[in-house]
Design a protein around this nucleic acid. Structure first.
Lengths: 407, 407
DNA sequence: AGGGGTTAGGAAAGGGGGTTTACAAAGTCG
DNA sequence: CGACTTTGTAAACCCCCTTTCCTAACCCCT
């Protein structure tokens, strides 16, 4: 709430690093132009990051007749970040270099009944150990681990306040993980992980206001407002999946009826299919992924049932998205997560068209709807980004301390 | 988007003045404690405002055994602010002193067919002239005029981009008004005026995230996020009235079906009444105000039809508010505008109960739902607040210029 | 009445941040 | 080889907030 000049520095540090990552090898000049900061500020920030070996100088670039521009790039080898995506049925862990390339992956299944906190923590610890070993990274190089866990999370205390799938209540997850993992840990939920991934590396980059719509088994919306993540007062903003779309509609596990999630979440899409064609060969009753894949293939092949299911789903989705556009007036709405990735362009086209019918003209005109351009798991990437942000934050503190020590 | 240290100053200036207005006569000590700023900063800011005659020193207060605390209060006579509320059928103008007390009021009716921009501007100019004359304020004392006009507004260029009631398109309203009114003008829409009024003087004061639900003929939500007004990319955030509440529900003038506004706007409430009891004596077919008043009286007297209509309305409203709570996780939801004021506590009680049924437990636990405590027209007050903010802004610029001039 | 004790508030110093200006460094071109 | 260009660093400067020091103003007690 209370802003200080230090926050400005942090924001600028983020922005500069974002631009460097996005533009790979780039010059200070270009960064200054892109960020709107003065050359001096950019140079200071770049110098700081060079000192920390997060960047390297990689040569020069001709400048129209003058001194050549020095180029800097992310020092991929300068550190590693780990992103952990804990979901209902699996733990997915990826290890990234500083350019956010995936160096190693590990996955552990969580079987039904194996969902006690200690068991889940065990899976996470094993997978984290595995990616570190695979990548052959020295432990010192791991700058941090970001962990995404569904539900409500208190990121300051590291407590998973409530995880709906497993009936967890106030589990001190970060403390439990800390017993197995020595790297700096950062906890948040998948909605916000997805949003931060888009903000740093995806379609929300450079935008002040964006909505990242997460379409998976569950549904939610990460909100980027005023250039930063909107968390709300108790860090639970973005619970869009339980927005009422149809009064007295389909029952939802949250206890209400007609929630968005029951129409556009993967199980909801299966229900849309069932209502259209109860015995469709597209339907794999026990397998959400297979069903969505079958639908995607069906649309590609022109199967009328598949086309209609996607259209129906898009219609529900668009009604919800139009509401978000009207309410928040964002620059961009990003469709993310595995369902969006698999249904892809056909879904996007239908959504765009249907949103245009629902939203008010003026807010709509300012809003773009796009698919997430992030090729990997956005939740892992976002979790790793939390670790990156944490590392940058402590950079600021460290350099401040160092300056104090010098005196 | 780009933050500078000056924004911090502006925000602090706002916060200090807000606290002074709220605490009437108060000491620098108390202000420092309330704002979290250091005494030095508070003293500087207070000194600035004293120089500008926006504050006065009003005596001393005992301090446990030491030097007495100097008390400062708003210098009500130090200036006047004018708030203009342009609505579909009237222009409502209020003149405030700096303590935001109403010194004069004027109202002009806009008859159907009299809605050409020049005609409306004429009404505004007449009413503004009237309040200035009534209050007997010297022209130099008027620090600014805030104007609220429905629809989409570009506050920088002063253009009313789109007013749905009158089919205005890109009317350069501020320029037109400038031909008749010599004071500094500030344009925005009633949603944001209501929100800013709550932020400065009402239930949102001191809260980082708040939603101000405007219940009038139309319906909208002013969003306070991160301590400031959320405007969205094209200054049209808050269009909550056209959120889909019932898929394929009642037709709305926006072209869609089932919008919140069609159920909880005043005409929607009349429809709720009609559906329950087509020929109820409560219904005044051509008069929204009279009908809502009749409902309020009916509830007070225990009329079962009135009670049921309020309950039905609350149920719709609560579904929409629960969605806002889930999505934005605000600290407070404020019910504002004339419908909320007239239906009052009975509506609030029903809404609270119904929201509790719809919203997720965690976000709900952090959220309070309250009626607006603002006794006067919140839109006029909010519009005047825009003028106040504008005056404070130029204070900053002026003192900067003055400092430059001194050199 | 005159000193201690206590609290208020102003002035100056200090630290964080960003920008502007001056200048050295490193090229190109005639 | 010198003139011109462009880059990038260092120093000076402005803004903002806080901390520290000191004076002002009051109480109480002797």
């Amino acid at each position: 709430m209370k802003r200080t000049s230090r926050d400005i520095r942090t924001a600028n540090r983020y922005e500069v690093l974002r631009q460097i990552i996005a533009r790979s090898p780039t010059s200070r000049q270009e960064l200054a132009a892109a960020t709107g900061l003065s050359l001096a500020t950019v140079a200071t920030l770049v110098g700081e990051l060079l000192d920390l070996r997060m960047l390297t100088e990689v040569g020069f670039e001709d400048s129209a007749g003058g001194r050549p521009r020095g180029l800097v790039a992310v020092n991929a080898a300068g550190g590693a970040l780990i992103g952990v995506d804990i979901a209902e049925t699996y733990v997915h862990v990826e290890l990234f270099d500083l350019a956010l390339n995936v160096l190693a992956r590990a996955e552990e299944d969580i079987r039904p009944g194996e969902s006690r906190p200690e068991q889940v923590v065990g899976h996470v610890a094993a997978a984290v150990g595995s990616v570190v070993a695979q990548a052959g990274v020295e432990a010192a190089r791991v700058l941090g681990v970001g962990v995404s866990v569904p539900g409500q999370v208190d990121r300051d205390t590291g407590i998973a306040e409530y995880a709906p799938n497993w009936d967890w209540h106030d589990v001190p997850l970060l403390d439990l993980l800390g017993e197995h993992i020595a790297y700096p840990l950062h906890l948040d939920n998948p909605l916000r992980a997805g949003a931060v991934a888009e903000l740093w590396f995806g379609a929300a980059r450079g935008h002040g206001d964006a909505v990242v719509v997460n379409l998976g088994t569950g549904v939610g919306a990460g909100l980027v407002l005023g250039g930063g993540l909107h968390r709300g007062v108790s860090n639970s903003a973005g619970e869009w999946g339980h927005t009422t779309l149809v009064l007295d509609g389909r029952p939802c596990h949250c206890g209400n009826h007609g929630c968005v999630e029951t129409y556009v979440g993967a199980p909801g899409i299966m229900q849309n299919l069932r209502e259209l064609s109860a015995h469709s060969p597209l339907l794999h009753p026990e397998d959400q992924t297979a069903t969505v894949d079958a639908l995607a293939r069906g649309v590609a092949e022109g199967d009328p049932v598949a086309v209609q299911v996607v259209r129906d789903t898009a219609r529900y989705l668009a009604a919800g998205i139009a509401d978000l556009v009207n309410l928040l007036n964002p620059e961009v709405v990003v469709l993310s997560s595995w369902v969006a990735a698999r249904l892809g362009e056909p879904l996007l086209d239908e959504v765009r068209e249907a949103v245009a019918r629902h939203a008010l003209r003026r807010p709509l005109a300012a809003t773009e709807i796009v698919l997430s351009p992030i090729p990997t798991d956005p939740v892992c990437l976002g979790a790793a980004t939390f670790a990156l942000e944490g590392a940058l934050q402590s950079v600021g503190q460290r350099s401040a301390q160092r300056a104090a020590g010098r005196t």
